[in-house]
Computed example of a mutant assay.
Amino acid sequence: MPKPVFAQPDPAGPAIGLTGVTVHVRRVPLIEDVDWRVEYGQHWVVLGRNGAGKTTMMSVAAAQRFPSAGTAVVLGRRMGRVDLRDLRTHIGLVSPKQRLPDEENHIAHTVVLTGHSGSVLPLWERYDQPLRDRATKLLELVGCAELADRPVRVCSQGERARVRLARALLADPLLLILDEPFAGLDMPSREDLLEALHTLARAQPELATVTVTHHLEEIPATTTHALLLRKGKVLTACPAERTVTSEQLSTCFERALDVHRINGRWTAHARV
């Protein structure tokens, strides 16, 4: 195999392109024969039961893990032929599980600044005034301007979630992956984060986003497409109005469900 080379994203290619992708551990498949294509400007949601393979699939899509078989293209570049570290600088990741700077000792503005290099410690010598100004504007974009000088340790979980979003956007990514970003949030905090995602979709129309969640109420109204994953295999991947339906979700979750959409938002309950 040729040595991976430095490469910038190719805007002519897909944001994510998986063809026949399989990942197995000790011969046990975690995902199998996955085909999935995400274009720039699309907003996807990924749904599936616990253990369906969502985290594994996202690790490939985020250029953090090579597939065991198949072809994976991220930001227009085929994995295995380019240095993945280059691609990762153009991918934003938001997850309550990710390691962030010591929130006990830093204000929100500082936490956002560390998104420049993805470090867990501030690298002050790299933060020029334009970058500091961008961090301020991103906090405004996600509705957290008043938190800039507030220690993150006194911020609510919902406020921290929006600070994580601003941090992921600092490097001006082409692809944003939100892995269960609503975990642990109460309803007002969930709605605040959803509003931040709505604002982001309007402000950056070329950005591709993928949101992984378990609950239909957490699907942003700006969602254009949906992928259902069942037992490591793609059940369907197409426009959301054809995917997030009672029939499709009942098959995916192996439970009879009634799905409704009101004012662009989805909800579901078990069929009586």
Rank of each mutant, 00 (worst) to 15 (best):
I219K: 00
E146V: 02
P9V: 06
T55V: 07
W44H: 13
H198Y: 09
L75N: 10
A7T: 09
V244L: 15
R27Y: 02
E103N: 01
D128V: 02
T213R: 02
C252P: 01
Q64C: 14
E247D: 15
R78Q: 15
L139E: 01
L227W: 06
A145N: 01
L170I: 11
G13C: 04
M79A: 00
T251R: 14
T224R: 02
V259W: 08
L47M: 12
W124T: 12
V74M: 11
V234F: 04
A196D: 11
G41M: 13
L193P: 09
L176D: 10
N50P: 04
L138R: 08
V74E: 14
G232L: 01
R190K: 11
S59C: 07
E206N: 13
L216V: 07
A168H: 09
A237D: 11
N105S: 14
M79S: 07
P4N: 10
G158S: 08
A183Q: 10
R85A: 14
A196M: 02
T71N: 12
R164Y: 13
L200Q: 05
L170V: 00
D192R: 13
E125W: 14
R49T: 13
A7V: 07
L87I: 04
L175Q: 04
V73A: 06
E125C: 06
L227G: 04
S59N: 15
P130C: 05
T211N: 03
M1H: 07
L216A: 01
Y40I: 07
L84C: 09
C144R: 14
V163N: 09
D10R: 08
P14V: 11
V244W: 03
E206S: 12
L139M: 13
T55C: 11
H260P: 00
S189C: 09
L235V: 08
P122A: 10
G115Y: 05
A237K: 00
Q129M: 07
A12T: 11
Q129K: 12
R26P: 00
H106K: 03
W266F: 10
V21Q: 09
V163H: 06
D172I: 01
D83H: 10
V111D: 01
T71P: 03
S59A: 15
A240Y: 01
I219A: 04
F182W: 05
E218Y: 06
A161D: 06
R271Y: 06
E159T: 07
N105K: 11
W124H: 12
L207V: 05
P151H: 08
R134D: 11
I107T: 13
T71H: 14
A108H: 03
G20E: 11
V259P: 00
L113Q: 13
V142H: 02
A226T: 04
T251H: 10
L227N: 00
V38H: 11
T114V: 04
T199V: 14
E217S: 13
L235S: 05
A270H: 04
L75I: 09
V112M: 08
L228R: 03
P4D: 03
L84F: 07
K231E: 15
E218Q: 05
F66W: 12
P11Q: 00
D86Y: 13
E103K: 08
R77A: 08
R27G: 03
A201C: 07
